[in-house]
């Protein structure tokens, strides 16, 4: 299996999206630097994607290359760019960084909400901004059945079971006061402090800020018993309660 010296694997990583609305290099660099200075450790070498799909007026290749250089110059790692697939620029294959597939509808609708807080020309969607919004707790008292999906912007409390094939997601913590048989994803916007608590761990998948573990691995640690899931130095830790 390891004859080749490597293995190819899929991975999900939380990144920052820089959504450009119109090109004004000085303003973008100025406001972005301001954001970075607020939490420099968070942005240091952080992966970032430049999204030009919201630009009403197009952008030239030179302008785009300068933008990439300026963003890199601020200490961010530009890993790719995105564009409206209907509106791809002619120079698309000349760009040195990879073109990533357009985001799904959910990401677009999320981008629409926090508009008031950010400067008009740059939308930086980061964990830090999400935390500024007061988090509400969602309480569900009925079982969450196979095929159902529940998402909470803050914490999620389920007073019944989460069936196999169901999915619960929260920006914050997830509490399940019943059997957790489906998938539970806490800290979906990147909160590494989020945790999952459940009365009976029988999950298909648990994830915190994109770090996940599947049934097979869980069975060896805690199974059909109360447990909490937390992230310690980028590693998921499952502890009995």
């Amino acid at each position: 299996m390891t004859d080749s010296g490597f293995r190819l694997k899929g991975s999900v990583v939380t990144t920052i999206l820089l959504e450009i609305q119109f090109f004004s290099l000085n303003d973008i660099v100025y406001h972005l630097k301001e954001k970075i200075d607020q939490v420099p450790h968070f942005f240091n070498q952080a992966p970032i994607i430049i999204d030009i799909s919201k630009m009403k007026r197009g952008i030239t290749l030179e302008e785009f290359e300068t933008l990439i250089q300026s963003v890199s110059g601020l200490g961010l790692g530009v890993i790719g760019w995105r564009c409206d697939p209907e509106n791809l620029p002619v120079w698309k294959s000349s760009v040195t960084i990879p073109l990533l597939p357009a985001s799904k509808a959910r990401a677009i609708s999320n981008a629409a909400t926090p508009k008031e807080e950010v400067s008009p020309d740059v939308v930086v969607k980061t964990v830090v901004e999400e935390r500024l919004v007061p988090q509400s707790t969602k309480v569900i008292s009925k079982p969450i059945r196979s095929g159902q999906q529940v998402y909470a912007e803050g914490d999620l409390i389920v007073l019944a079971q989460v069936s196999a094939g169901a999915e619960v997601l929260a920006d914050g913590n997830i509490h399940v006061y019943g059997a957790l048989r489906g998938r539970a994803l806490a800290g979906v916007k990147g909160d590494v402090e989020a945790r999952i608590f459940c009365k009976s761990m029988e999950a298909e998948l648990v994830s915190i800020a994109g770090n996940f573990m599947l049934t097979d691995a869980l069975q060896d640690i805690v199974w059909k018993d109360s447990a909490q899931v937390l992230l310690v130095d980028d590693n998921l830790e499952i502890a009995p309660l």
């Binding site: 079982p143 196979s146 095929g147 159902q148 196999a164 169901a166």
Partner: peptide
């Protein structure tokens, strides 16, 4: 059993009682 669980979810979300917010 899995399919029944799925249909229970649909009973709770796509029935007239669910849509009108009546007793489930």
């Amino acid at each position: 059993v899995r399919d029944s669980d799925r249909i229970l979810g649909i009973l709770q979300s796509k029935s007239r009682r669910a849509e009108e917010g009546k007793e489930p």
